[in-house]
């Protein structure tokens, strides 16, 4: 397969990682915690989608919306029960709590839903661009045959839609501007009269909605099992850190870097070593952090 085809794969992978990473990084920047259970939020969203399609049964786009609403509510509920009560204890107790919560959720899902994988029943149309010149450089084809499935277009389209909505929310609405203000300075936010707990609740809902959408999109691409979200958490975390933890725009950039590196490394790595592709993504993460510790879009640390 040529470079062009892998760019397509990379953009698709980057798209659902980006959707999830925005939620992850907002929690990091505003609630001030690393939520290691966040992968499970994707799984929960994907399963709500599967149930809605299979049991109710409703068409897939409606199921995606149901999953997003459900994901937002589950996220808020989990936060209220597990995270809000220990908000003042600092990042480390919250991180440990989230690791435990993730473990419990993952196994709880495995017990109720079983070990098997489930699939969204989708009809796939495939756009093929055959007969393009290979433009070979050594053993690597730069162009070559390219195909794009309708599902891939949906994933990328959803991501673009999410970017527009999140950007509008964060720059045009009071609650969005208050979220960014809290990321800057929670104490000053309170002086301005911002009810910080209400804003945190909003962040939890938004992050849950985004995680559920990412989970459904991931499920459409592959399948849904109890480990679906957990298999993505390192990529999501890396995208957020690469972009500058707390910055949604950085997380988007970081997600596409990770997605493209994962996909393209399969072209350049010798056959049999493609399993190393995720390791390369982390090497890039380490490299960027060595050069710019605050990440791609990160601000310099403010002096007191």
């Amino acid at each position: 397969m040529g470079v062009a085809q892998n760019v397509v794969f990379g953009l698709v992978t980057g798209s659902y990682i980006a959707i999830a990473a925005i939620g992850f990084t907002l929690i990091y920047g505003i609630v001030n915690m690393i939520n290691f259970a966040y992968g499970e939020y994707l799984t929960i969203g994907a399963f709500i989608g599967i149930l809605t399609v299979g049991v109710l049964p409703l068409p897939l786009p409606v199921a995606a919306v149901v999953a997003m609403v459900g994901g937002g509510l589950v996220s808020l509920l989990l936060a209220r029960v597990f995270f809000t009560p220990i908000n003042q204890t600092g990042p480390v107790p919250m991180l440990l709590t989230s690791i435990g919560l993730g473990l419990a959720l993952r196994n709880g899902i495995r017990l109720t839903a079983g070990r098997g994988s489930r699939y969204f029943d989708t009809e796939t149309a495939t756009l093929r661009f055959d007969g393009l010149p290979a433009l070979s450089v050594g053993p690597v084809d730069l162009l070559g045959d390219v195909f794009v499935t309708s599902e891939q277009l949906v994933v990328v389209g959803c991501a673009v839609g999410v970017f527009v909505v999140v950007h509008t929310l964060l720059t045009r609405t009071d609650v969005g501007i208050a979220m960014r203000a809290m990321g800057d300075d929670e104490s000053l936010a309170r002086v301005r009269g911002i009810d910080t707990q209400r804003i945190r609740d909003n962040v939890w809902v938004l992050a849950g909605v985004l995680a559920a959408l990412a989970g459904v999109l991931l499920g459409i691409q592959t399948n849904v099992s109890a480990g679906t979200g957990f298999s993505q958490i390192l990529q999501i975390l890396s995208a957020a850190i690469l972009g500058g933890a707390g910055s949604p725009y950085g997380a988007i950039a970081g997600a596409y870097v990770i997605g493209l590196v994962l996909a393209l490394s399969t072209v350049f790595l010798p056959t049999g070593m493609t399993g190393l592709s995720s390791a390369i993504a982390f090497l890039i993460l380490i490299g960027v952090l060595l050069v710019k510790p605050s990440g791609l879009a990160g601000r310099e640390v403010r002096e007191a």
């Binding site: 208050a178 203000a181 800057d184 104490s187 000053l188 301005r192 009269g193």
Partner: peptide
């Protein structure tokens, strides 16, 4: 630390009247 550094002047003023 009496302004939000990553927000614009307009956004800062808007939050001044948040309530």
């Amino acid at each position: 630390a009496n302004v939000f550094p990553s927000l614009t002047v307009d956004e800062n003023l808007r939050l001044g009247g948040y309530i």
